[in-house]
Computed example of a mutant assay.
Amino acid sequence: MSGLKWLEAEKKLFRDGQTFNPHRLEWIADAEASVSTAVDVSATEALVKLSGTLRKVPVGIIGPREATEAQCALAEKLGAAFARHGLQLVCGGKNGVMEAACKGHAEFGGMPVGILPDEEWQAANPYVAIPIATGIGPARNALIARACVALVAVGGGVGTLSEMALGLQFNRLVLAMHDAPEVKGVDRYDNIDDVLERVALRLFTGK
Rank of each mutant, 00 (worst) to 15 (best):
R24C: 08
L25D: 09
L25N: 15
L25S: 06
E26P: 05
E26M: 14
W27D: 13
W27C: 08
W27T: 05
W27K: 12
I28H: 09
I28K: 15
A29I: 07
A29M: 10
D30V: 05
D30S: 04
A31V: 12
A33P: 06
A33M: 06
A33I: 09
A33G: 12
S34I: 14
S34E: 13
S36Y: 05
T37S: 13
T37G: 03
A38K: 05
A38R: 05
V39F: 04
D40K: 14
D40T: 10
D40L: 14
D40G: 01
V41P: 04
V41M: 15
S42W: 08
S42L: 10
E45L: 06
E45G: 11
E45C: 06
E45N: 12
A46E: 14
A46H: 00
A46I: 04
A46F: 09
L47H: 03
L47M: 07
L47W: 10
V48R: 15
V48H: 15
V48Y: 14
K49P: 14
K49D: 07
K49V: 02
L50C: 04
L50H: 08
G52I: 01
G52W: 03
L54F: 04
L54T: 09
L54I: 03
K56Q: 15
K56R: 11
K56P: 09
V57F: 14
V57G: 12
P58F: 05
P58Y: 10
P58V: 02
V59E: 08
V59Q: 11
G60V: 02
I61R: 01
I61W: 02
I61M: 11
I62W: 00
I62L: 03
P64Y: 02
R65E: 04
E66K: 07
E66F: 01
A67W: 00
A67R: 01
A67E: 00
T68H: 04
T68K: 07
E69P: 08
E69H: 11
E69T: 14
E69L: 13
A70H: 02
A73M: 03
A73T: 12
A73W: 08
A73N: 14
L74C: 13
A75S: 05
A75K: 01
A75F: 00
E76C: 07
E76I: 03
K77A: 10
G79R: 02
G79E: 13
G79M: 09
A80E: 09
A80K: 14
A81S: 07
A81T: 06
F82C: 03
A83F: 12
A83V: 12
R84V: 05
R84I: 01
R84N: 13
H85A: 15
H85W: 08
H85N: 15
H85S: 13
G86E: 09
G86F: 08
G86H: 12
L87Q: 15
L87H: 06
Q88I: 04
Q88F: 11
L89I: 14
L89N: 08
V90T: 06
V90N: 03
C91D: 07
C91V: 04
G92A: 10
G93N: 01
K94T: 05
N95G: 10
N95W: 08
N95I: 08
G96R: 00
M98S: 07
M98K: 04
M98I: 04
E99W: 00
A100D: 02
A100R: 00
A100K: 11
A101M: 11
C102D: 04
C102L: 00
K103E: 02
K103L: 13
K103S: 02
G104R: 13
G104P: 07
H105Y: 14
H105C: 11
E107S: 03
E107Q: 15
